[in-house]
Design a protein around this nucleic acid. Sequence first.
DNA 1: GATACTTAGTGAAACGTTACAGTGAATCGA
DNA 2: TCGATTCACTGTAACGTTTCACTAAGTATC
Lengths: 344, 344
Amino acid sequence: MRTTLKDIARQAGVSTTLVSYIINDRPVSIPEETRARVLKAIETLEYVPSAAAQGLRNQKSRMIAQLFLHYEPETTLSEPCTAGKTPALVDSLALKGYFHLNYPVPEGEKARHDLVNFLRSHRVDGVVIENTYDEDPYIDLVADTHVPFVVYNQADCGHPGSAVVNMDDAGGMRLTVEHLIRKGHTKIGHLQGNLRTYCDAMRRKAYEEVLREHGLAVREDWIRGDGSCTVEDGFRSTGELLDLDDRPTAIAATSDLLAMGALRQIQSRGLRVPEDVALIGFDDIQAASFLSPPLSTVALSYRRIGELAGEQILKLIEEPSLRFDPITVPVRLIERASTAKDFR
Amino acid sequence: MRTTLKDIARQAGVSTTLVSYIINDRPVSIPEETRARVLKAIETLEYVPSAAAQGLRNQKSRMIAQLFLHYEPETTLSEPCTAGKTPALVDSLALKGYFHLNYPVPEGEKARHDLVNFLRSHRVDGVVIENTYDEDPYIDLVADTHVPFVVYNQADCGHPGSAVVNMDDAGGMRLTVEHLIRKGHTKIGHLQGNLRTYCDAMRRKAYEEVLREHGLAVREDWIRGDGSCTVEDGFRSTGELLDLDDRPTAIAATSDLLAMGALRQIQSRGLRVPEDVALIGFDDIQAASFLSPPLSTVALSYRRIGELAGEQILKLIEEPSLRFDPITVPVRLIERASTAKDFR
DNA sequence: GATACTTAGTGAAACGTTACAGTGAATCGA
DNA sequence: TCGATTCACTGTAACGTTTCACTAAGTATC
């Protein structure tokens, strides 16, 4: 059997109440001698409180779940953007003695229902929502359970007990397109991601805005991508772009994975990057600098984002009435060889 | 307040016992009419059982922790080898209604102590141990708490209530070295990883064995690597190798990351791969096929490994007396351009 | 000497489930 | 028609904490 408070109390000749007080450092006066006796009993009997009993009594679990919405087994947890934030989140939770739970939410009625039950079961004190769509209905679902939550990549969602952490998607995409324009490009294509996500939607919007600001037309046939945001999609979509009679001389991709596919496609046709087609990505994944030519891209600190999410959710748990303004984490342009030639 | 069994019982005019029986599908005879009444009450009051109360009562949490030993914040969770297995583990646990917890264990007495308390607190029903050293003392630590566990990359550890899942490290390294020998190489260097890990130790051992079997000398000065297994290490260590008067004509790295660093070093000196130095990695990370030249390597299904770990730990929880033989997941050689030239 | 306060504790009731041991009533077999 | 069985339930005691309201001394205050 397991060692319980009762065992400690018996061993030390005191009540369980007193043992509990000592363990939890309650401000009651206890003579050193008694305290020492109890601590010794805890030591020798190797007592550790039962998480379940504490959870039941305190209505707290000290667990935070990271929700992976629109989950697909083979991809979601491996994507740079999704996976990148997890380590920092885990670390910042661990720092405060909280545990991190991975909770995938595949599409479908069953998973949706399971999610609500999960949240209602009080298994976790709060959640961090990953991989949301723009104005994602799942957010309301979570909000309705009154579990505090932090969500990435959303406009301010306005729910009480929630906070938003964004990266500067629009700013990043502006950087890339303006960079290409400075290099002399006027025919700039775009490889888009999943437009249902806030990230990719904002990036595409920024792409169009910058073009218009510079008096360049937005051509629908220069915007490609099936939404899967994979290397394969990049390869295929770039193929479509290059098949056009009037094709772009530069491509701004919404992710490095798309850009990797693009690079492969361009080079497989004997074209050169950046001489024939300039190419720039987004995310600055590790592989980017190893491509030939090394890929220009936008770097952002996924660590910082995850860290912020961790801090926010813990603050919300302590004080659910807190209101936060959405935080936006800055990005920066990384210029490499894939955009290194001036185009005139 | 939260809706409890009592509320349901009152609403349906029955005892809490009966409600519990219905929810848990206990084999007792209950007229359809009563059952329907109770289910309706559950529905309308939106009842969901309290995870903590069930945990306390059943002494089960339906949670599995993945332990990341020797944890370093910036790297451990991002490494291909470590991160690669997590998604499949999460999926296979979710399939059976179990939750997946990330538990980092940094070096140090405090973290070690926290770990023991964590396991003793019965917060999880079992653990999967990631990133172990060879004959890692942490394994005994876990075993002593009698929490069922699965461990990757170990010789059979012999503890009751445990299982081992390996990938075929030795077999994979044999494939790469034999491949290089077939290509005509006799001067083959090795970039080693962290020899304290079973993986890297096995790989290095296999490297040496194959050399000996083919009558080739094992030269200590051709074996490099500071144990960090990073791109930077690969770059630096390959520099040392190339500085030698009598230098290898081929390099077998224990990981793709090391090989990426090696490639950068080789090319930065104006040498060609594979003409001047052939190069082969291990892991088949996504970037490998995007290098110039594309990197030969060893592919293994991290998905399969994670899946197996999930299945094993759940079986152990159901039946802790079960004994499993260590499972070894097969690997295969991927030949790409970085080893494509015969060397004579 | 009565009153108030501090010290060092204790008992019992939650928290929300589940399992065991029953209990009446109805049905069945001989 | 009696005992046994089945049916449809229920009461209560756990599971292991924490908290609230107490108490019974001892000490200080006036």
